[in-house]
Amino acid sequence: MIKAEGLSKRYGPLTAVDGISFKVEPGEVLGFLGPNGAGKTTTMRMFAGFVPPSAGYAEICGFRVDQHPIEAKTRLGYLPEGAPVYGEMTPWEFLDFCAAVRGFSGSERQERVGAAVERLNLESVRDRRIETLSKGFKRRVGLAQAILHDPPVLILDEPTDGLDPNQKHEVRELIAAMSANKIIVISTHILEEVDAVCNRAIIIAAGRIVADETPEKLIQRSRYHNAVTIRFRDLDDLNAAAEALRALSAVAEVEIDRQGRRLTALPRDQALILSSVDELVNARGWDIEQLQLESGRLDEVFRRITTGEAL
């Protein structure tokens, strides 16, 4: 288990992290979300023992990071923001160094480094200097370093930043494959990622936790949860159709997308409006291409939560 208890960090008059508390249990993949500057990286750095907290503490597997840093760091795999590495080394040398510092020696060290290289598909570049590698490879070297010692806790600061869609997919698969018995915390501002790999999401804004839920629950907070989108086949009078939808008692609002020939009906109090919209479509005989029930939009939830708008 990892735990933050009243964790705070102040830089002079600026409060970067403002007394946050949470626990993460094995098997959880926690997505740490928030706008830039919200305190994500600072929080992760306090867990990694790089930044000392101004108040409160972080704990990893029962060891307080400020009191027992070595024990805590031994159990943690950490990918710093931007995945810094020693550019003049090759991936193999670099990983070998990390393994040696972590106390592995002899054939076990070889095996661990070899396994990490294999897991992140670094074979083709294992003997090239890291500074000559692409951003994707550099990031993977950083990730290999984090998983090398098979730690029970992984904290990854923007693990997919700067990767192409295929590499992002690979990293997500890797995270998913390791998630069964580990604690994994990833920070990101790519919302699809939360949906794809996390089973819990914490949103922080201005150093405070403003939401802590499963991604599904978070999506349900969207105004678009249970909304219905109609796509028309030809250019009907969209305004008239919108009027007709607005007349339905359960519909709160209708959004018009002229270019896409789409109308989106937003429900009042997340009511199920699909059947009544469907009835209306049939009654009016509209020529439609698609009728779609929306589950919600994470980006909209994110924006409203982090800008402090009411939900």
Binding site: R45, G49, K73, Y78, P80, P84, V85, G87, R102
Partner: peptide, 14 residues
């Protein structure tokens, strides 16, 4: 400058 200090300081070394 390169940020590798964060890596070094988060390895289990004093």
């Amino acid at each position: 400058k390169s940020g590798s200090i964060e890596l070094l300081m988060t390895l289990p070394v004093t």
